[in-house]
Nucleic acid binder design. Structure first.
Length: 300
DNA sequence: GCTCCTTTGAAGTTA
DNA sequence: TAACTTCAAAGGAGC
């Protein structure tokens, strides 16, 4: 039964149609994230105003209007923010279609018909949304909450204990320790990362999956299936995220974290694509990614 | 406990 | 400037 389901789903995916317009456009347009820059002269709410506006405002029917107050919601958060839409109309004509999935997905998770781009009724109030990293931290003047911005990652308690033990070590070591203890300021999340954060729980619930790699594949496909307006929402969020990040950490650069994680060697990367390491489903990427034959249904 | 997997996008580095 | 690389999140798996 399980095998049958998996085969069916996999065969479906192999014949999974690309989104409408993919591969058919003759005049490629700039990517959404490039095109989605606000034009000059469009009044922008300050970040403080964004985060301290007491009441969410229903969005106008025409999202291309110069200001859209669009509080969105996640279940565990109480705040909201409003965003300014500068160029919602300047969206890419289409998006590239992702490569076939490496993981066999169930139709309810991987098949496009099951996750159409959500649409809101015209004039309906926008759902609340507060991405944690968009919430005010203590470093924002005038804000009562002493919650640090989540981009700052303090060392873990374990590391702190370890560093406490090392107090007896040499000054040089403690100096190096101090450097290591410096909280890491993380990169602001991009549009897709924000989308993943919001939708992950939903996918987990729908698909009863726990493997992040598999979930991310589903989310990647859903991202491509989103309407341009829906994607624009996340590009706008990401823009705000970067803006806030710049305000909170003016001197920060992505260079600060560059190379901090262990650099993956090309050999290792190639190894992974040529069968060196198993993925989350215990299969080898190159085998799963290869064009799959149309497998016959197998009843166990 | 570190790294990989897997996704997209931003930003860094390299040629 | 184009191409390539790294890192953001997530959590199970493997070493």
């Amino acid at each position: 039964m399980y095998k049958e389901t998996v085969y069916s789903a996999f065969n479906l995916l192999m014949h999974y149609p690309p989104p409408s317009g993919a591969g058919q456009h003759s005049q490629p347009q700039p990517p959404l994230h490039k095109a989605n820059q606000p034009p000059h002269g469009v009044p922008q709410l300050s970040l403080y105003e964004h985060f301290n506006s007491p009441h969410p405002t229903p969005a106008p029917a025409d999202i291309s209007q110069k200001q859209v107050h669009r509080p969105l919601q996640t279940p565990d958060l109480s705040g909201f923010y409003s965003l300014t839409s500068g160029s919602m109309g300047q969206l890419p004509h289409t998006v590239s279609w992702p490569s076939p999935p490496l993981y066999p997905l169930s139709p309810s998770c991987g098949y496009r018909q099951h996750f159409p781009a959500p649409t809101a009724a015209p004039g309906a109030p926008y759902p609340r949304f507060t991405h944690p990293s968009l919430m005010l931290g203590s470093s924002v003047p005038g804000h009562p909450a002493a919650i640090p911005h989540p981009a700052i990652v303090p060392p873990s308690g374990k590391q702190e204990l370890q560093s406490f033990d090392r107090n007896l070590k040499t000054q040089e070591e403690s100096k190096a320790e101090k450097e290591a203890k410096k909280p890491t300021i993380k990169k602001p999340l991009n549009a897709f990362m924000l989308y993943m954060k919001e939708m992950r729980a939903k996918v987990i619930a729908e698909c009863t999956l726990k493997e992040s790699a598999a979930i991310n594949q589903i989310l990647g496909r859903r991202w491509h299936a989103l309407s341009r307006e829906e994607q624009a929402k996340y590009y706008e969020l990401a823009r705000k995220e970067r803006q806030l990040h710049m305000q909170l950490y003016p001197g920060w650069s992505a260079r600060d974290n560059y190379g901090k994680k262990k650099r993956r060697s090309r050999e290792k990367h190639q190894e992974s694509t040529t069968g060196g390491k198993r993925n989350a489903f215990g299969t080898y990427p190159e085998k799963a990614a290869a064009p799959a034959p149309f497998l016959p249904m197998t009843v166990l």
